[in-house]
Amino acid sequence: MKSIDTVTANKTTYSILFIISFGHLINDMLQAVVPAVYPVIKDAYGLTFTQVGLITLTYQMTASILQPFVGYYTDKKPMPFSLIIGMTSTLAGLVAVSFASSFYQILAAVSLIGIGSSIFHPESSRVAHLAGGGSKGLAQSIFQVGGNAGSAIGPLLAALIVAPRGQHYIIWFALFALIGMFALSFIAKWYRNHIDERLARGAKSAGEVKSPLPSSRIVWAMVVLLILIFSKYFYMACMTSYYTFYLIDKFHVTVAQSQIYLFAFLASVAAGTIIGGPVGDRIGRKQVIWLSILGAAPFTLLLPHASLGLTVVLSILIGLIISSAFSAILVYATELVPGKVGLIAGLFFGLAFGMGGLGSAVLGKLADSTSLEYVFNVCAFLPLIGIMTILLPSTKKS
């Protein structure tokens, strides 16, 4: 079957980019509801930090393990309406979480949310790639900022809807899933028509597209990129899963206040994401990766020693800087391995979720045996791994 990824027009289809970004917003907002209500669930069921970490691990691992396989399959056989199927799985998971009455039922419910994410991300990333035309970095940033905005809005809505009323009110988020399914139906139709048009014009097969570098250097570059993803998302796991607990424990803020501070951090992540892609289009992907990961280190090292006000400011700066890397990393990887957008997106989104889940579980166990302040001190050193960017080879666009 001929690939639809390898021949893309220079024209950027902004309407499709904004709709798929909105779909990404809905998807990631619904996923963000789960960690946002951890304080409610932890108190209701008397969970330890280790169990909280296991909840994150479960839904992140179901998302991460399946994504590369979904991407690999859809590179060969695109499935436009799979986006709606993924949102349906997320919808089912949300309903199940709202009525769960035990730790194990919560694990089963969040696994459905993870499966929905694993189906959504590879195909939606391909849609952004196709709609981006000649501005791949910008397209990925628009797509990514939707997800990051959703991750920021999720905790805020959870603070307003769930925190004061209880777990069962999670079911109201099912309405957003239905809205997302409606929006994605337009994307699915455009995507299906786009496939037909590309095949009618006789696009090159993926096998005819050659990478700019020898295979040994590509493998090495991918290893370095995956290590960089590890450093970024292990630190992000620390912030998204335990930042609220850290603020409550160290500064004695309320649950609602901690959610607002988490929203400020996640909003800065969304802002940083929209900056990273177009800047990478202009100055090169490697330069953005350098500045994004290693550039966050001074602020992460200072954060555990700061007052409440400075902690909030530093968290915003960290989110703004560290979030600009992902779009650059993803586009850089697709330039190394042309014609495999689904596989690359599945691999990197999957690893991001996997590192988030693994990080949450490991850091939860560490927090139980030491303290949250100790966890934040240890994680502060993770962005220093960004020095490995020096090992990345150059492409004509990097």
Rank of each mutant, 00 (worst) to 15 (best):
A267E: 01
A267P: 02
S268N: 06
S268C: 13
V269Q: 02
A270N: 04
A270F: 02
T273W: 00
I274F: 13
I274R: 00
G276H: 01
V279L: 15
I283S: 11
G284F: 06
G284H: 12
R285T: 03
R285G: 02
K286T: 08
V288C: 02
V288M: 06
W290D: 00
L291V: 05
S292G: 09
I293K: 04
G295S: 08
G295A: 12
A296R: 06
A297R: 07
P298R: 09
P298E: 11
P298H: 10
P298D: 11
P298Q: 08
P298N: 08
F299A: 13
F299T: 09
T300Q: 11
T300H: 08
L301G: 01
L302A: 15
P304S: 14
A306C: 05
G309M: 11
G309K: 11
L310H: 05
T311D: 07
V312N: 07
V313Y: 13
V313M: 13
I316K: 00
I316N: 02
L317A: 13
I318S: 03
I318T: 02
I318P: 04
G319C: 12
L320R: 01
L320A: 04
I321P: 01
I321M: 04
I322G: 01
I322P: 00
I322L: 14
S324D: 03
S324G: 08
F326G: 00
F326W: 03
S327C: 11
S327I: 10
S327T: 10
I329W: 01
L330I: 14
L330S: 09
V331C: 04
A333W: 07
E335C: 10
L336Y: 05
V337F: 10
V337I: 15
P338V: 12
P338D: 13
P338F: 13
K340Y: 07
K340V: 00
K340Q: 11
K340M: 12
G342M: 11
G342C: 14
I344E: 04
I344H: 03
A345K: 09
A345G: 10
G346H: 06
F348P: 02
F348R: 05
F348D: 03
G350E: 09
L351T: 15
A352I: 03
A352E: 02
A352T: 09
G354E: 01
G359M: 06
S360P: 07
V362M: 14
V362A: 14
L363C: 01
G364Q: 09
K365D: 12
D368N: 13
D368P: 02
S369N: 10
S369I: 12
T370N: 12
S371H: 06
L372H: 09
E373N: 11
V375S: 03
F376T: 10
C379S: 15
A380C: 14
A380D: 08
F381W: 15
F381D: 13
F381A: 15
L382S: 12
L382C: 05
L382D: 05
P383W: 12
P383H: 12
P383F: 09
P383Y: 09
L384T: 08
I385K: 12
I385P: 05
I385S: 10
G386I: 09
I387L: 15
I387G: 08
M388D: 06
M388L: 15
M388K: 00
T389N: 15
I390Q: 00
L392Y: 02
L392W: 03
L392A: 02
L392H: 00
L392G: 01
P393W: 07
S394V: 02
S394L: 05
